[in-house]
Write a protein that binds this DNA or RNA. Structure first.
Lengths: 358, 358
DNA sequence: TTGTAGGCGTTATCAA
DNA sequence: TTGATAACGCCTACAA
């Protein structure tokens, strides 16, 4: 039999190590996989030879043989969004530490692409983490039937998931604004398919009603800076004196749009965001609902690895959020300062009043 | 022989499709890989059966058999940095379109981790794209000997690379500042190991000398918002009236630090960044050296795929940058307006004067 | 403690 | 145009 096609000859195989070390391939395999079965001397010898040759066990072959790929995939709608980037970082850090490599799928906010990524990657990974998935429940269930799958920031019963509970914080934010004297507020919404958008919108709606505030819903296409900018006019037209955005990036866009029109924040309009990743970087620093994104990523990986390890995992976990007051909320123009902030559910805090969590 | 361990039974194999379709495994394989060898009827039949079963060719097995993984890896120092996120996006978009899945490696700015990622991923990918690699030339060469490797924003002879030529734009920026009447400027540097940091620093240094400006170099640990903030004091101490930062994120941190001290930009200090990703989002909008990050990512993939395809690639490509003037540069305090901007190498333009590139 | 041999899912070669 | 069969690199039950 003839040798195969141009096999990138750069990478040594287990056979070469075995020959060089004068042992069987099985022994080399064990030297890496289960060294406790071998004598110390043998392990040492094999490892030295391997090092010298630059041998590293071929993960692909290993995967085929064991059925374990040693890879996981993280799929996000837009890696450019700092919220997802931070989650990715947390996930990847823990995954690597646990011996897993991470595929990153960017679905560009489209369900079709997300679907494609999942089917294409399925055989190469041991499991998936879907962040803010734009897929239908049916598709998610279908994919979950083929490979272990964990949901972040998306609520589908029967699938292990970590939910970011921003509802109470949004309610607190609305109450905070009401306390400042605002009578009409706007919610700048996120993607219609987004679970968290619904959750946040509903929370705002509930709280607004309770506080007797007039609420306007302003739609956007995607949670991006540009989309936030573009909706500025629409927000202004409502006559609202304060805006709660779906996330920080959108809020930042809105602030930019306001500045471009010569309006000041919070003087002419109060703005509240959500995520806390970019909030500290805006000017003025954005009052925002803070999420521990790095932790979200880590938790996602932990849940997935638990599933892979056959352990029981809570099907549904909730992550608390916190309203952090910075510099973008104030009484509406021409309003005397009213009573101090009164928060019901979530507790608000000022950045300077307490240290950030560790 | 007994059946193997708990093989995730969710994914159908080629054998099952072959049986269901009443053909051989080879035929099924061809129906996907080289349908032109089969009769139309057979292809249709096999595909239908496969669809129904939910069969997708197993990329892992394919990789083992062909030697082609169908994967590439992109390694960046920090995915949280919008510059790298944007590159990742461009890279992934093109890679997917060409049938490649993308691993993302985040080295957390450390050479050791980068090294680890490369060795761990080597057998699973057809090639690497290293962005702003923090590795030594020797290590890069060592890895390049094992797997095709393309460098982005790093200059190592003998390795295909795309260099972002910000030098002339930095010089133009310095000249612009000189033209505004600044006499003392600061360069807020990036990571010492970074190639582009050296390039940018040297360019600033050259231009400053030429223009007779006093130049101070202010070091930072990493190109992050926080690091930018932390160096504010140091920048102020120099007495410089303008600062050029290593990148936008650092510049943004500096602006935040200045604002926290009640100083205004550009009133009290002019600031220039580099990357152009976040520049439009800051307040005031940051004058910055603009880079087509999405294009950088795409080009990186194109170069790598060319190498994989056995085509000749230019060993060294340069990508032009452009100084985009926004709202963060002005004459130093107490200086009358001087002559209009004079730029030598790069051509500066104001955001409103011309449309952004398509 | 170590070696032998069969198989993971796919593709490539050779025949038919 | 299709089928049988041997790899690809590694792991592991079984034997020694």
């Amino acid at each position: 039999v003839k040798a195969r096609a141009v096999r990138s000859s750069g990478v040594p195989t287990i056979t070469q190590v075995a020959e060089a070390a004068g042992v069987s391939r099985a022994t080399v395999s064990r030297a890496f996989g289960q060294p406790e079965l071998l004598s110390d001397a043998t392990v040492k010898l094999v490892r030295e030879v391997a090092d010298q040759l630059g041998y590293v066990p071929n993960q692909t072959a290993r995967a085929l043989s064991t059925g374990r790929a040693g890879n996981i995939a993280l799929v996000v709608p837009d890696i450019t969004n700092p919220f997802f980037a931070a989650i990715m970082r947390g996930a990847q850090a823990l995954a690597r530490q646990q011996g897993y490599a991470t595929f990153l799928g960017d679905s560009d906010e489209t369900p079709e692409l997300e679907d494609l990524l999942l089917t294409r990657l399925a055989a190469q990974v041991d499991g998936f983490i879907l962040v803010s998935s734009r897929l239908t429940r049916e598709r998610i269930r279908a994919h979950a039937a083929r490979r272990p799958l964990v949901l972040l920031n998306r609520d589908v019963s029967g699938i292990p998931r970590l939910l970011i509970d921003a509802a109470s914080s949004y309610e607190a934010a609305v109450e905070h604004l009401a306390g400042l004297g605002h009578r009409a507020i706007a919610y700048v919404s996120g993607p219609a398919i987004s679970w968290s958008n619904r959750q946040r919108r509903d929370a705002v709606s509930r709280a607004a009603e309770r506080c007797g505030l007039l609420l306007f819903i302003v739609p956007t296409e995607k949670p991006t800076f540009e989309a936030g900018q573009r909706c500025t006019e629409a927000v202004l037209k409502t006559g609202a004196t304060a805006a709660l955005a779906f996330d920080d990036v959108t809020a930042q866009g809105l602030m930019s749009g306001l500045a471009a029109r010569g309006l000041s924040v919070p003087g002419d309009m109060s703005v509240v965001g959500c995520d806390g990743v970019v909030a500290t970087m805006t000017y003025p620093p954005l009052s925002s609902i803070s999420i521990d994104c790095f932790g979200v990523g880590q938790t996602g990986v932990r849940m997935l690895l638990d599933v892979l390890g056959g352990e029981r995992v809570r099907e549904k976990s909730m992550l608390a959020t916190e309203l952090v007051l910075r510099a973008t909320t104030a009484p509406p123009q021409g309003t005397a300062v009213l009573s101090p902030v009164k928060t019901a559910a979530g507790k608000a805090r000022g950045e300077n009043l307490s240290a950030r969590k560790p």
